[in-house]
Amino acid sequence: MEIHNLSKQNSILNSFLSELRDVNIQRDAMRFRRNIERVGEILAYEMSKSLNYRSENTQTPLGTSSAKLPQNEIVLCSILRAGIPLHNGLLNYFDRAENAFISAYRQHKENPETFEIVVEYLACPSLENKTLILADPMLATGQSMVATFEALKAFGTPKDIHLISVIGAKPGVNFVKKHFGKHTKLWIGTIDDKLNEKGYIIPGLGDAGDLAFGEKLQH
């Protein structure tokens, strides 16, 4: 798997990531969502450089202009609910993409520190020979990303796969690396070192879904 860690470069992305982590700024849910969206836009821009391009002509009022335009048929799949702001940021740039949505959540058993990933809702177009973008803002254990991809296999074989995350942890990155092929590309804002005993990224930013949309009741 090819890994593109954007935090290794100096860019405005680091400002958005810093605000996402800040416990004081996190109190503003609208700003939190917008920062996730802006990170998604930056990741989309960087990812767009790897697409396939072809020269096409555009008629202007005064003549003809030629430009290289992307040719990929993109399907953008986000994991609900935390993935919605990230999905919006990606869709701002890949506005002609088809869209898929899937719910994948941690179901805890008797031991609150252990869990399995449960997939319940899935809506997806054909993936056959298309470019799949699989987006999840927090790449913690990596289990949600892998479980989602397994569920998507019924919809066809994509030509290429791009994974998009805002913040990840090294264990999660290593986990998905084992389950995705060498031609898969990961585009990520930054990678933290570790997970805590409950599988949350340290230092991370907390629960992205709760921060974006409010705390949820456990069932």
Rank of each mutant, 00 (worst) to 15 (best):
R81W: 05
I164S: 01
Q26A: 06
Y200A: 15
S15H: 10
L86T: 12
M1D: 05
R27C: 05
L62T: 10
N196W: 04
F180Y: 06
M30L: 08
F115T: 11
K198Y: 15
N57M: 12
T157H: 07
H4P: 10
A100E: 12
V75T: 13
E98M: 11
E56N: 06
S66E: 14
S66A: 11
S48A: 10
L69F: 05
T131D: 00
L17I: 04
E113F: 05
M30D: 14
Q59G: 09
S11A: 12
N57K: 12
I84F: 03
N88Q: 09
P61S: 14
A140Y: 01
T190Y: 03
L6A: 06
K153A: 14
E128M: 08
T141W: 01
E2F: 13
T190I: 05
H108Y: 12
K185L: 05
P125V: 13
G181C: 06
K216S: 05
N92Q: 09
G156S: 11
L69Q: 12
P85Q: 09
Y200R: 09
L127W: 00
L43S: 04
H108L: 07
E2Y: 14
S126T: 11
L90H: 02
I3F: 00
P70C: 09
G40K: 01
F115K: 10
K159E: 12
I36C: 00
L127C: 02
G204Y: 13
E150P: 00
R81D: 03
T64V: 06
Y105S: 03
I133G: 00
D22M: 08
Y93W: 15
K177P: 06
G40I: 01
I36G: 00
A104D: 07
R21F: 08
S103F: 10
N24L: 08
N99E: 11
P70A: 15
S48K: 04
G214V: 04
F175S: 04
Q218Y: 13
P137F: 02
S165T: 15
G63C: 15
R96G: 08
G204H: 11
V176E: 03
L17R: 01
A140T: 13
L205N: 12
D160R: 15
S126N: 08
D207W: 03
T190D: 06
E2N: 12
L186I: 08
I25M: 09
T141D: 01
L152A: 03
G40Q: 01
G172W: 01
Q9E: 13
R38G: 02
A100D: 07
Q59E: 14
P171Q: 10
K130P: 02
K109C: 07
E128H: 14
L134K: 02
Q59S: 08
A104V: 09
Y53E: 11
S165M: 09
R54S: 10
N129G: 09
K153D: 15
K194Q: 11
R106E: 02
A82I: 05
K194L: 06
N35Q: 08
I102C: 00
V39L: 04
I25G: 00
G89P: 04
I202E: 13
